[in-house]
Structure formats: structure tokens, C-alpha cells
Design a protein around this nucleic acid. Sequence first.
DNA 1: TCCGATACTGGACATGAAGTACGGAATTCG
DNA 2: CGAATTCCGTACTTCATGTCCAGTATCGGA
Lengths: 200, 200
Amino acid sequence: MAERTIDRRIARTRATLQHALISLIPKKGYEAITVEDICDVANVGRSTFYAHCTGKDDLKRRGLDEHLRALLSARQKEALAAQGDGRARSLAFSLLLFEHARDHLELYRALAGGRGGEVSLGSIREILSDLVRAELAVTAAKNLPGAAPREFVVQYVVGAYMAVLTWWLDRGAKPPPAEVDRMFRRLATDGILAHLVEGS
Amino acid sequence: MAERTIDRRIARTRATLQHALISLIPKKGYEAITVEDICDVANVGRSTFYAHCTGKDDLKRRGLDEHLRALLSARQKEALAAQGDGRARSLAFSLLLFEHARDHLELYRALAGGRGGEVSLGSIREILSDLVRAELAVTAAKNLPGAAPREFVVQYVVGAYMAVLTWWLDRGAKPPPAEVDRMFRRLATDGILAHLVEGS
DNA sequence: TCCGATACTGGACATGAAGTACGGAATTCG
DNA sequence: CGAATTCCGTACTTCATGTCCAGTATCGGA
């Protein structure tokens, strides 16, 4: 309502700043980047920078949120399609996110890979936690006595996934998403024991 | 060889600085802490601080390393004992680290819990990766075709463990270490599927 | 016990980044 | 085209970092 059509200058500046930040992260590492660096690369005055966001973290968060929104909508569609299919595949987010990461490799590598990724990984982690939590709520009717609490399982799965994702990204996203997805879901559902004894 | 007996003044100063940092983290969060804050709490001149370490991160790392060394030696003993037993228990580090964390709750909560934990978690993550890697090298003779690469499994397991550990710490380490250890190792070895259908 | 060596004090200083403020130039929208 | 908005560039304040140094306290060895 408030913002009908965004001024082209604003859009340009924001996009330029985003791109500048992303391009800077692999070179210096997120922590070492200064606001002046970003403005320098983007050819934008520092005053202008502060007119758009309150700092480095803010800029990063905006960019990440924007891209994750796209993934979320895709995930929504997938979920609906799976419901139509009759039964949703477990850990459905996995393949989706792997593919999304591959499609925006530079972005993800900058945001989540190696050093300096901790900040934005928090956002992804939370979103994933919600997805897994919802999925477990359907699959596991209630907490069995003696079993691990649901939140425990959520943390377990999401933590494992995040680790695998960043590892995959750091190594250049070599194996195709489908394969990485298969490996992850196999480990998660059947455990490492099954993985060790059987082969495929 | 070089440092026979450490000067008492040095030992005092270092310990005081460590304690000051630890006590500050829960209040302000690691990122917001300044060197002056630490010196203020510790009643130590800033010059003195820089005579001992190069900065905030350095101080933190030293403290963590020191405490992890203790754990490592314990782990070594455990590993030897298990070998004498005939067969080492899988994921042996789990119980050990949970117990160690409980015994140094404040330290771990400050270092690994909530916000500001990302820095030092890196150290723990690396150490754990080494342990798991070594364990897998024994258990899984070689990479089966079609199976996930060993490093993939390592990242998976360590990521899951770190997530569970920080979750446990953030919630006050309520369940006893033995129970958390059991839940984790069950999930890791048998997968979440087994956890969902069976109870215990 | 005493003395040389070593570590701490406390303050001054340089550096560099974070934010803020504002007049004038450029661009956009209607 | 004209009014409104945005951007530029510069200057300024604030704050934390890191270094340096002379004086003082404390330690370890003889």
C-alpha cells in the first residue's frame, strides 16, 4: 500500500549494494568487510548507504530474506503437489533447497559457505526448523515414552542438513543436488549404521 | 622447556581475563564486548591485555583450547579402555562431551550457547570431526560404491551433534547427559525412521 | 633478605571505521 | 517541463583498536 512503485534510483542502489556485498564476501570474508568497502565497490556514497539500511548485517539480511522468499513459495507449491500425490515425501525441503542453492551458487557460497556464514545461516536454520517441525508433527503422531522429544529430532535433522549443505557448497557443489539429497535423506531416515553395512 | 614455572602474575592475569570474558558474554553477547570491557571487569590495564593476547578472539580461543585439552585426554583414556574391551562403542565422544559440558556449564553456555557462539564452535567442530573421521575409518573399511563419501557422513554426524549440543545447553542442560547421549546415538545409528516407529 | 628481572599501571597517541548532518547536483515521476 | 525525491561529497563527532613508554609493584633466584 505504502510503496506503489519503487523509485528506480532506489531499486538500482539497493541492488548495487547487494551485489557489492556478495562480491566482497569471498575476497575479504564477511567480518572484515567495512561499509566503506561496500560503498566503494558499489560507487555509492556512505550517506546513501545509511539512507537504505542501518549497517552491514541489515543489508545482508535483506538480501537473504528476499531470496528465501522465492524458495518458500516454491516449497509451498511442492508441498501442495505432494499432498495431491497422496503422500508427502519425508524431508521434502532437502532437494528443493539443494537445487535452489545450486541455482544461486555465488549467493549461497557467499552467505553460507566457509567463514562469515554464521550470521545468515541463522535465518535459514530457523526456516528449516519450522518446515521439519511441521513435517514431524504429521509423521509422528505423538511423543512416545522414552523417545527423544520432537524438538530434539528437529534440531538433529536441521543441524545435520546445514552441515551437509555448507560442506557441499564449500566444495563447489560438485555432486548434483539429486545425489546429495539422496545421501542426506538416506542417512537421516535409516541412520549411519544402515549406510555402513549396505552399500546403496 | 622454555617455560618452567609460569610467573604467578601471568597466571593470575590470564585467569582473571578469562573469567571476565566468560562473565561478560551472557550479559552483552560476545560481539558487543569490547577489550576495554574485559579489562574493566578484570581490573587490568589495556596494555596488559595486549601483552597477553592479540584480541578478543585470541583470548576466547585460548580458554577454549585449554578446557578442550582436558576433555581430549579423558577421551584418549576412554578410547584405550574401549579398545581393551574388545570393541569400541560407536560415537564414543558423545557421552564424554555431554558430561564435560555439564561439568563446565557456564563456560559452555557462554562459549557455545545462543548468540555469539559461532566463533568457538568452530574449534569444537574441528576436533569432533577428527574424532568421527578416525572412528569411521575403522568402522567402514572402504567407500562402498553408491554410498555417501566418508567426509559427507562426518559432516552429517558432527553437524547433528553440534546442533543437539547447543540446543541442550540453551535449554539449561535439563536432561542428564546419559539420556541425551542415548537419544543422539540412537538417531545417528538407526535414523529417524526407526525412532518414529518404535518407541524406546 | 636483598636485588635484578619481569610484569602491571596508567595515560597519551595514532589509526580507522561507524554514524550523522547538510547544501547542492542529478534524476525521476506526473 | 517542473516539483519532488534521491544521491553525492564532504566534514564532523564518537568510539574501539592497537602501540608506546616511563614509573611502580611483584616475583624468583641467590
